[in-house]
Design a binder for these strands. Structure first.
Lengths: 331, 331
DNA sequence: ATGAAAGCGCTAACAA
DNA sequence: TTGTTAGCGCTTTCAT
């Protein structure tokens, strides 16, 4: 292993003081010859500034924490890609939190941010409560919320019009004459599930459907197996002409289940997913899905965070992403 | 925003010196009453140690860098999950590199590690050359290679028996009487593509097939669209009874393409993928795929790195993952 | 068991 | 433009 090379080594080699080297490194000086000598010394020694020392001195880590529920769901993969892209040209490194599925995990993660290892955090959580909100407001770094449940957030945030997205899907089903719609929702404790349920109830009522709450099934998780499990527990599945799934993974499970039962999608029963992930194009039939633009949201979150880091006094930004129904074969 | 709370604040409140507080924080002292007082002060003030200061002092960041090609490929998502799990109970935080598709990107990333923001790195790269190898050996932190191309690596590494995996798929095709096999490979410059090509040629020859190199097509990328593009350029596709794809994404593209062409999988033409990603279960037909245990590799990489950080003098570990053919409907 | 103090590598204020 | 120096918050040696 090579010798550790610090500002001192470079300064010595170039015959200047460490301050001068520091200035060159940070682009604060314009002197020709000295600058050149220092540059050469840096190259020859392979000097790289010590992040920790800089972080300690300027109280900034040049790192961003991305806090997500889990990486199993392709929607968060897409979001992560967007975030990566958003920070690509910046000086910031990206930290990935562990899986944050429960309130406890979220809280633990947020508290750990007190260690100052990140200059900002992008939080997308399935769960939200007062305790999380309280911790968020004691954080000493900017937060960008992606899909938060907080009422009047004091943070930049990017939400999705869940109700509208669900409504679009329901409307589309109705426009195709499919009125017996099953809503295959995710775990009821999660925030997206609550929002999507609201959207479903509202939309069904607007179509004069009585007691739409009877047409909701909750999967235990946002994944294909959970979808299959729930569906297998529904006695009269063929009373339905359509299934709206709370995400693409559930939709994938639904399609698989229906195909096993020899029910044709979309002929016997139409299926719509939510999130429009990469998966949608690959399923058979290809999946009609409500696009909430996860990758774009990730990129936008990164942008908002960068802007706030640049200028902490900017007014709070709130963006609501308009959903788009991407029509493919399944409905 | 709350006041910044340092060791000093805690020490003052508890009426002790910062050294004592530091010892309590790091679990180095056993005194009853003092310890209690300090603990209370820490709780009351919500003290969290400053990562940068600690990192600077002990020359260790408690961070790990995960350097991957891209997050579009579900195999890296799985690997990332494994890595997350592997570090879950450790003190280390996880950093995610940006997309590292080209040699230049890999080199830039590795060089930046000179800034000491990570105590170790897990590198999975599609490309490898002498320059990368050289930089790796100048790094002052341990490296774990996942799927490296280096001949006699001086690093812990976890590889995959690509040749064997491809061979298993070819053997399986032959055992089902399918001898006209097309190998749909990825970009030829990438390391996995080279290895998989070798495996294909070797295996085909062992089955007395002449000039197997004529049955290889290279997609421009490891994704579904690239697969469709290549396949659409092949005139006499129906001379083949099987397609072996270099990964599941290519296989997904192939299945889609074949379905458009009204060729039945597996009746007209069988398809096998590689990586056995989450996708495999969701495609129609479900995809037979060679499992290289990406998630496990990620977890193992984390384990190796933790062990080496614990004890740098351990002998180098090299593991070759045995592939497993997961048979589903597509072949 | 506890405290005083040095110093990790860097930036920035001040002086020259 | 350049150098000197204090100090960011912490760990650890040495003394008590």
């Amino acid at each position: 292993m090579a010798e550790k090379v610090t500002l001192f080594a470079v300064a010595e080699r170039a015959g200047v003081s460490i301050a001068t080297v520091s200035r060159v490194v940070n682009g604060l000086t314009t002197n020709g010859p000295t600058k050149e000598r220092i540059r050469r010394a840096i190259d020859e020694l392979g000097y790289e500034p010590n992040s920790a020392a800089r972080a300690l001195k300027v109280n900034a880590s040049e790192q961003i924490c991305l806090a997500l529920p889990d990486l199993n769901n392709p929607v968060y993969q897409a979001m992560t890609r967007g975030v990566q892209r958003g920070f690509k040209l910046s000086k910031y490194r990206l930290m990935l939190s562990p899986s944050l599925l429960t309130t406890e995990e979220v809280i633990l993660q947020l508290k750990s941010l007190g260690r100052n290892y990140a200059d900002g955090v992008i939080l997308s959580s399935l769960v939200f409560d007062e305790e999380i909100e309280k911790i968020l407001s004691t954080l000493r770094i900017p937060v960008v919320l992606v899909g938060g449940a907080i009422n009047r957030p004091k943070f930049d945030n990017i939400r999705v019009d869940s109700e509208r997205g669900v409504g679009m899907a329901v409307d589309y089903f109705f426009s195709a004459g499919r009125k017996k719609i099953l809503f295959l929702n995710g775990p009821w404790i999660t925030n997206p599930a609550k929002r999507r349920k609201e959207g479903f109830l509202e939309s069904m009522k607007s179509h004069q459907i009585m007691n739409p709450e009877n047409y909701i099934a909750n999967a235990k998780a946002f994944n294909p197996n959970a979808a299959e499990e729930v569906l297998s527990g529904i006695k009269k599945l063929n009373q339905f002409s359509a299934i709206l799934c709370a995400n693409d993974l559930l939709a994938a499970g639904a399609i698989k289940f229906l195909s096993k039962r020899k029910m044709k999608v979309p002929d016997d029963i139409a299926v719509i997913g939510i999130d429009n992930t990469d998966l949608a194009e690959l399923l058979t039939p290809t999946l009609t899905s409500v696009d909430f633009k996860a990758e774009y949201r990730g990129e936008l979150a990164a942008k908002y965070l960068l802007e706030r880091l640049e200028n902490p006094n900017l007014p709070i930004k709130k963006t609501i992403i308009e959903p788009e129904l991407i029509i493919r074969e399944s409905a």
